[in-house]
């Protein structure tokens, strides 16, 4: 399954490195990545592939949440279909 990971918060050194390291450890493949500053907030979105994920989805979400708390940013993971269905006819 493909999912979107979104990271929102105050910019600082190493956010992408921290998040992508965690994803690599859990065998999550990053397909696309974009980063911008939106309304003064660091905003990163990633399209990822979860087919090789070895832990339950719930666990990965928990790890991402903990990582977000450590970095002081909000990290969410959502199946890409929610965005596709809302924004594409």
């Amino acid at each position: 399954m493909k999912a979107i990971i979104s990271v929102i918060g105050v910019d600082q050194i190493g956010i992408i490195a921290e998040v992508s390291t965690l994803l690599a450890e859990e065998k999550v493949n990053i397909l696309d990545i974009s980063q911008t500053i939106l309304d003064d907030y660091f905003t990163m979105t990633m399209l990822v592939e979860l087919d090789s994920l070895e832990i339950p989805l719930e666990e990965l979400k928990k790890k991402l949440k903990q990582k977000g708390e450590k970095l002081g940013v909000s990290i969410k993971l959502q199946h890409e279909d929610i965005f596709r269905s809302m924004h594409r006819i």
Binding site: I4, S6, I8, L31, D32, S34, T36, L38, T43, T45, L47, K76, E80, I82, F83, R84, M86, H87, R88
Partner: peptide, 12 residues
């Protein structure tokens, strides 16, 4: 890929 603005709109 869905663009960042669209993703942020959904999350908001």
């Amino acid at each position: 890929m869905i663009n960042t603005y669209e993703i942020m709109e959904t999350i908001r």
